[in-house]
Amino acid sequence: MMVQAKKSKKAKRVIPGFGLSLGVTITLLSLVVLIPLAALVIYTAQMSPSEFWEAITRERVLASYKVSFITAFIASLINAVMGVILAWVLVRYKFPGKRILDGMIELPFALPTAVAGIALTSLTADTGLIGGFFAKFGISIAYTRVGITVALVFVGIPFVTRAVQPVLEKLDPVYEEAAGVMGAGRFRIFRKIILPEILPSVLTGFGLAFGRCLGEYGSVVFIAGNKPFETEITPLIIMSELQEYDYKSATAIALVMLAASFLILFLVNMVQHRNAKILKGGR
């Protein structure tokens, strides 16, 4: 342990290319991400604090945060659970059609969100295949918050699955088998042995999916109904501010959303970093 710590401290720049790689990384990051984002901040800085505060706390805006937050949270939760199951099934079991299933996971990325929204709306409207079924029980999906959640689940499918899969692949089943032989129940094995290992990656996937869902626009506008206070999401508010040529309010709300996604990601990365340390320390 001590030797390793000493070595990594002393030898931290043995490998060549630090200057070059960090330089390239930071430059590209600045060009594509930081400078444009700075434009957003600069634009918002033209507002007085009270103007800014008013723009981001209007009742309709507050209601939209709530809608966006709740639906994105539930959708990411569903994706977290289903993502673990999917990853588990794909890694541990053999069954016909597995490769096809595996290959399909990224499809939600490729389908333009607008198309996804249109397809999902026609499926889940009261006249649609799925919507018609639920309509018999008096449940509507399209044009409600449930519909928004459905669209967001679709958008977020790949995140958790693809985050958990590699970790599960590396996880040696030997420990589970040993625990099983020693008489531990399946649920207990899962909770005590598997879950701690995959939890950080589940959280990573959850965080990414959550952030992505918070900002999703294309698919949601078709399925949401967009009624103020009920099914109006924050990106739509930004869009409507833009259409009113109210750049200031739009950028102010955009900044709030940006801060939210930054926060989520930062937390995720903290978890991941800690996890990486634990993994290394254990070796």
């Binding site: 630090f18 200057g19 070059l20 790689s21 960090l22 330089g23 390239v24 930071i26 430059t27 590209l28 060009l31």
Partner: peptide, 19 residues
């Protein structure tokens, strides 16, 4: 110091390329 010049030159090279 050497490192800083390296970072800087990389920054410069990429900026020029990108521009």
């Amino acid at each position: 110091k050497n490192l800083r010049t390296k970072v800087l030159s990389a920054v410069l090279a990429v900026s020029v390329l990108g521009a």
